[in-house]
């Protein structure tokens, strides 16, 4: 969806940001590095990192951005667990956009890829 949104807005982004590359996150995305670090802290459950990244995001982007970012991170903490606990496969493995993103990010390294590749 990041690629789809960047194509819609004709904004250059570097998908390596998804794998935690902070310099990549700075390309085309306002507060990209701060958002990546906050997302990582939420998903990893690291309290110290979370306290630090929350304050950094607040200082740079403001309270409304912090709250909306917390909502999105919380939402996807839910979505990944729905997908994996129910074992759902990717709906369409044949779209060119999906193929290129999966290849670029090497997503088949994840164990849950089996829910799609072995379906």
């Amino acid at each position: 969806m990041l690629r789809a949104s960047s194509l819609t807005t004709q904004t250059e982004v570097d998908l390596n940001a998804v794998n935690g590359d902070l310099s990549a996150a700075a390309i085309g995305l306002e507060y990209g590095p701060e958002l990546v670090e906050f997302a990582e802290a939420v998903a990893s459950g690291d309290k110290d990192k979370l306290n630090q990244s929350r304050q950094t995001l607040l200082d740079h982007a403001g309270a409304e951005t912090l709250v909306d970012s917390a909502g999105v991170a919380a939402n996807f903490q839910r979505m990944v667990r729905i997908a994996d606990s129910m074992g759902i496969p990717v709906d369409d493995m044949e779209t060119e956009l999906g193929k290129s993103v999966r290849s670029e990010l090497n997503l088949t390294r994840f164990a849950s890829a089996a829910n799609t590749l072995n379906a």
């Binding site: 904004t11 998804v18 958002l35 990582e40 939420v42 979505m79 990944v80 990717v90 890829a113 829910n115």
Partner: peptide, 19 residues
């Protein structure tokens, strides 16, 4: 939306979610 999807994708990647 790009900022939202960056957060979503990073959370999903750390959770190793293929979907």
């Amino acid at each position: 939306r790009m900022q939202m999807e960056l957060i979503a994708a990073r959370v999903s990647a750390i959770n190793e979610c293929f979907y």
